[in-house]
Write a protein that binds this DNA or RNA. Sequence first.
DNA 1: ACCTGGTCCCGGGCTCGGTTTT
DNA 2: AAAACCGAGCCCGGGACCAGGT
Length: 390
Amino acid sequence: MNIDDRIERRLGYDTGLSVLADFEAVSPVSHAESPVGRGPAIERLLDVFAPAFSGSLPPSLYVYGPKGSGKSAVVSALFDRLSTHSGPRQAIQTTTRAVEPTIPGFVYVDARHASTRFRLYHAMLAAMSDDPVPDHGIGTEELAESLRDVMRTGPDLVVAVDHTNEVETPPASTLIGWLTDVGERLVPACIGRDPPDAIDWEPESTVEFAKYRRHVLVELLTSRCSTGLGRDALTHDQIRDIVEWSAGDAHDALAAVMGAAVSAERAGASTIRSADVDTGIEGVPRPCVALGRVLALPESRQRLLYELAGLSDDERSTVGAATEAIAARPGVDLSASTVRRVLYELADAGLLERVTVHRSDGKGRPPSRLVPLFPTVVFRELFDRQARTG
DNA sequence: ACCTGGTCCCGGGCTCGGTTTT
DNA sequence: AAAACCGAGCCCGGGACCAGGT
């Protein structure tokens, strides 16, 4: 939030009226322009990229660390800033002659939205060119060829691919293969949770992210809440409690904050009460699937999870019952058999947990019920808001 | 043996740029 | 210029088959 936004908020009609003033600021899926408390990590990344500033190619890089440790926040913010510096630079006087180093282009793509060859190339082109890239009626090879063109004429490229090696994203080696296929003056920087020895690619350098330390996470939440929530909506002690519970995971902490804010707002309260904090914390399963994963799913899948999260306990008691209930919802236009299949797929992907229920009338294999492994209240809130704004 | 839940796979068809024909 | 057609990726639907219980 910049100064204008802050002033506008003070002038605005919603001042003091709502607990959740700016949901983007406390959303676990949006990142701040300048990440809090990650200076050393930024320095380490800049160390790796140092050769790029004098005109040579930096080494390939693998960034790893646990969920909610700021990998995406830092790398996306850093690449966003670096990309504004790319292109030919002013001549630099050296002792012997003038050289004109060229800063490479820095492109950040999220594998969650670029899980196929086609979509990876599409995302890269979209990030680099001003005019829109068609997303239908064009072949993968055509996209690859335009990328090769860009690489031939433009500067070198450093491509960060976030969220590699997840269930619905390709492993690093696959992504590297796709990248090296479009140009050799291209340096990959993959980001993932697995340690380097657990992945099928050998990067030339690595940077590790550790869990947030308590005081850093307190600082981060305080900063986010000061812009996202109404004045003094959440006390310092409440923030400390949430941080303590979150065990250094910024995603979970923010999800709890947002859950608490939603709870308070629904109750018509002007600040977040301790019961709201409890509700917010209880709404976050541990371990918790990142909301970014859920929100990266195709619209039809998200709709399905949205409806599932809104079902009564009775309707959710078995996969079969949930299928019937979801397929009957007006917003769902999938057939029952597809709903059923997709529910199983989502469970297989780790977004839902299948808990077998033991029925007394047991003929045949006992059914299971589906338990969401992501914060459902916050997800529904984000889904609603995303639907409202398009 | 029988029954219901769960897994896996792939053909068809949808959407929508691009291309050819009218 | 308009219309008809083509073909790209990928989503949907459903059926064959396997698993695990009485």
